[in-house]
Design a protein around this nucleic acid. Structure first.
Lengths: 199, 199, 199, 199
DNA sequence: CATGAATGAGGATTCATTCAT
DNA sequence: TATGAATGAATCCTCATTCAT
């Protein structure tokens, strides 16, 4: 006799996994991948050391799941914000606004992402870049190419432009100066980018 | 009676130290600080593992010395390139040209620096930022403020502008896509920045 | 579901811990604290080297646990022996008898204790003296003060007298000449002390 | 051509060796044999690391020389004090007085000696005991046997009695409570020993 | 004799991972 | 699935000692 119905089990399992991912987020953000302690993560999630290995085959796999999850979350947030306006220049403003919002609401995730993208582990870097591909595409197509089509932006190549925008975006998404002030001034960034893009 | 004359000794210890720093550069670039092996560094430099501790009291101290050294090297390169032209806009072009040159000629150093600036170790991050202060100042004063004074640039605030330029610069200085192509297109970056700055 | 019931687990961890302490006793007695090898201890106890760190956070902590354990054992032995007779002078005889018994039955513990009490590590020395406080008190109150109250001993100050008795006792408890003969003659010690104390 | 005449050389050599021994005394007293740093000793004596190996073939040999030197010094001090009076009981008083004097004037030496005699290194222990043999003999013959011959002391066996006296003496020579007060009360010790010995 | 750069054995400690229950 | 005791590879660092000058 099963202790739980399948749907319940899934929920439970899902929530355990989620709890582990959340604890992992905090730990990886705090200490970085290398110094993060797997056992601490499991315990912080309210489970024993070994439990984490029922959900993730290794520390690396846990990190990989986290990278994917963060990229998905990040994409959702950006899509949500950007899709609410139509004009490409408004979308660009929304896009950079999101960076500020993300770093304050998902500080740990932002930290992990920047550490990963600019970190020494090539495999993780590539995975992160891959996971962010949809966002690169979003910027290239739904903002840059769209702006060109709308006649607002000049005819730049959307691909490298997307990379430039994303580069600045990612730094803004994660970097906070020691006094809590943003490292980059969002208004200035938007202004520079709009000037760079305007037809 | 001393084994070597002072000048000789200085040469020896200086060159040993330099060899160790070079080996450390390669190792830290390859594996990142956490996974770098101190013993390997010493051996890669042609010495026994313990030798490195005659020159650096700890792995951290070695890393700190490296951070400082890289920042100094980087500054020298940039000063050299920028100071050869007078017009602020030319200097800006030179500045971003340097990024390309640095990443190809000092790939390991560039890697270490980006890993450090965006890495999880707060102490290292702050040290790197501090070590790069002269370069931030250079950009703010010798390029941005200068361009404003020359009437080429509009009256932006040099400080945050310097941060924006440096942010893009550091990414360019270190980031190479897997196919060896630069991650950001220098020409585009320059164009965007000039548009953002032009009076 | 737990791997063991609580009682079982306690038994297991208790016995493992005990095995480690026993191995540590042998190793510390053989080599002294400084030259003792933590990994050897764990292996001597039948475990992998890392296991000891599941029970003691550091080599020092292991030593501290050992000091406390030995002092407790020693006290139990002495209390047992002394409490069986009533007359203070008989108790004194019993007390010194115990020293002989202890050194032969708990040779390693005796060795560790003397090494610690007269060793260079101030922290360990103080901990050992502190751990032996109950025994100092026992001698002062249950033997010396008692003898004075019983009219057997003259009115010496129990405190310093206890220290003198304990000093000789500890040396007797641990010191064996190379030929296996006791370093101090128990009969003579008792005689001298009784002469010193008699009313 | 010799840089110095033989006599001068000897003096110089002798003083270097002496300086090294003095530095070693401080270091061994401070840290114990195991944690003492040979290089620090050499530097503390005003020489380079390697110099110490021109005078002592190894750390152990240095320690052995120190043990011998301390025992000789200690013996000289005791002989000096004891030989000034004739009566055995006076000599006993003088003997224990010396302990107090020694611990305050030669604190480091006293520390090293007690650490050695009750330390884990069997070789050192035996060497120390051997080096102290003249003092054991002195006590046995010049105090105990003499007292018996003089009719002051009862006919105890001088050998074990000497060991008892020396045991207490060594502890007194080295042990100081944390408040700077002597661990054992010299007056009480003398009283107990005289009572133990008196005819 | 003096020097100090170089050596490398040795050891405490961490922690991802396994697995019997 | 959950548990946590056990594992052992991996590594930073210390320092006694050597030796070329």
């Amino acid at each position: 006799m099963p202790r739980y119905k399948d749907s319940e089990r899934e929920e439970i399992t899902g929530s355990t996994r989620q709890a582990l991912l959340e604890a992992a987020t905090a730990e990886f953000a705090r200490a970085g991948y290398g110094d993060a302690n797997v056992n601490s993560i499991s315990r912080a999630a309210g489970f024993a050391k070994g439990t984490i290995y029922n959900y993730f085959p290794s520390k690396r796999a846990l990190m990989e799941a986290l990278i994917d999850e963060i990229a998905e979350l990040h994409l959702r947030v950006v899509v949500e914000a950007v899709s609410q306006v139509e004009a490409a220049s408004h979308r660009l403003v929304r896009f950079f606004d999101t960076a500020r919002a993300f770093v304050s609401q998902h500080h740990d995730q932002a930290r992990i992402m920047i550490n990963t993208v600019y970190g020494p582990d090539e495999e993780f870097r590539l995975r992160a870049l891959h996971a962010y591909q949809p966002m690169f595409r979003l910027v290239a197509e739904e903002i840059v190419a769209r702006g060109i089509a709308q006649g607002t932006f000049r005819a730049v190549d959307p691909e490298p432009t997307s990379r430039l925008l994303m580069t600045i975006y990612l730094v803004m998404s994660s970097h906070v100066a020691s006094d809590g002030q943003p490292w980059l001034d969002p208004a200035q960034v938007v202004e520079f980018m709009l000037r760079g893009l305007e037809a």
